[in-house]
Structure formats: structure tokens, C-alpha cells
Simulated scan of single mutants.
Amino acid sequence: MQHTNLTGLMVVVGVLTLATALGWWWRRRDGRIRPVAREGQLADSGPDPASPVLAALGARPGAVTLMQFSSAFCAPCRATRRLLTEVEGRVDGVHVVEIDAERHLDEVRELAIWRTPTVLVVDAEGRIVQRVSGVPGRDELMAGLRPLLSGAAR
């Protein structure tokens, strides 16, 4: 009987350790801007970082487009929308498009969108250059946009 109680305790400790490690990993990754690889490199954004689907979803040629994929009952999506709208209002050359992920399932699959909110940063040539899963940090987002913009903050 003693052996069974010890086994159960070890299982509980193992599950809690695994859950803690996964939670830590998730928090470190959530909201971080990740660059998307260029031609000849492995990309984590899906099959084609310059997919024509981006133009169909509203990417604006000649501007940096922040494409936010959202869902109806996503609380972090609202926080992301406020942040991106603020950035669009303060920075010349930035255009924001919000896409309802549920209504654009084919595009979501093609672009490898696995959760909401996800923000794709599309450069002036229509290529995905960065992506964020979760609510991005304002300072990190601004720092990531600087090299893509020729205009200055208003």
C-alpha cells in the first residue's frame, strides 16, 4: 500500500512539473515578435511568406501592413486591436487590417495561423517579415517596425 501512495505522489509531482515548464515556455513565447525567414531559409510562417492571399486580405502595397487575425470571443484580440490602432494613428506608413479567422479558414490554414490573436507584419513589398502570437508588447512592436518604415512617428 505504501508503494502505491508513493507512485501516486510521484505522478502528481511529475504532472505539476510538466505543467509548470509548459506554462513558463508559453509565457516566454507569447507576444514575442519573431522574424520570418527570407528565401532559401526555413520559415515558420507557412509555405509562402509572399503569398498572394495577403493582398486579398487587405495588405496595402507600399505600406507596412499589420494583419491581425482575431476571433469573436477573444479578449486578448481586443487589447491587440487597441494597440495596433494606436500604432497606426502614431506612425506614418502603417496600415492595420483585422481579419476574422473564422470567416477566412482557408487563408488561416495557408498562413499557418494557429491561434488568435496572431499579427503578421507585411512589408511594403507584400512579404511577411515578422509574426506575433498573442498580444505584442508596444516597445517591441515599435522596434520591429522601425527598420521597415521610411516615415517617422507623428
Rank of each mutant, 00 (worst) to 15 (best):
M10I: 10
V15N: 02
L18D: 06
A19N: 04
T20E: 05
A21W: 13
A21I: 15
W24G: 09
W26Q: 13
G31V: 08
R32A: 14
R38M: 12
E39Q: 12
Q41L: 14
Q41E: 15
L42Y: 06
A43G: 13
A43V: 12
S45I: 02
P47G: 15
P47S: 14
P47F: 10
A50H: 03
S51Q: 09
S51Y: 05
V53K: 02
L54N: 07
A56N: 01
L57E: 01
P61S: 00
P61Q: 05
G62I: 03
T65D: 01
L66W: 10
L66N: 08
Q68V: 04
S70L: 05
F73C: 07
F73N: 15
F73D: 15
C77T: 12
R78Y: 11
T80Y: 06
R82V: 15
L84S: 06
T85A: 15
E86I: 03
V87T: 09
G89E: 06
R90A: 14
V91K: 03
D92R: 15
D92I: 04
H95L: 06
H95C: 04
H95W: 14
E98L: 11
D100Y: 02
D100R: 03
D100K: 02
H104G: 00
D106C: 00
V108K: 01
R109F: 07
L111V: 07
A112Y: 02
V119M: 02
L120Y: 13
V121Y: 04
V122I: 15
A124F: 09
R127Y: 08
Q130H: 15
S133L: 06
V135T: 14
